[in-house]
């Protein structure tokens, strides 16, 4: 991996860790999710900077690095799905609110 790519991933990783700590402090995310993000990004930062880490991850899975990528994609899919469900829950809430306003306005007349 080139030096620039390593540097970019390291910076993004550190920013992501910093951001998740801020979000935890503001109670926008749970401690479990914060820890998950930190472990994920610390691993990513170490993996790009220290080749031994990525090779130990590879040996942990017993196959090549594509296995790690595969799991990453799965995790991303999981988060997309969670986001979709959360958005649709919010949509439901908006609809209920709009309905309540409409019915209340009619009652007032």
């Amino acid at each position: 991996m080139t030096m620039i790519a390593e540097l970019i991933i390291t910076i993004i990783g550190l920013l992501a860790i910093f951001k998740s700590l801020i979000m935890l402090r503001k109670r926008k995310i749970t401690l479990a999710l914060c820890l998950f993000w930190i472990v994920l990004w610390v691993t990513a930062v170490f993996a790009v900077n220290i080749p031994e880490v990525s090779s130990s991850i590879t040996s942990f899975f017993g196959r090549d690095i594509s296995m790690v990528l595969f799991f990453n994609i799965l995790i991303l899919y999981y988060f997309s799905l969670m986001l979709y469900l959360r958005t649709s829950k919010n949509q439901d809430k908006i609809t209920r609110l709009v309905r309540e306003i409409a019915l209340r306005d009619e009652k007032k007349k």
Partner: peptide, 10 residues
């Protein structure tokens, strides 16, 4: 009777 949704909800 006419009820008004303040935004479009479908």
């Amino acid at each position: 009777y006419a009820l008004k949704h303040c935004i479009n909800r479908g």
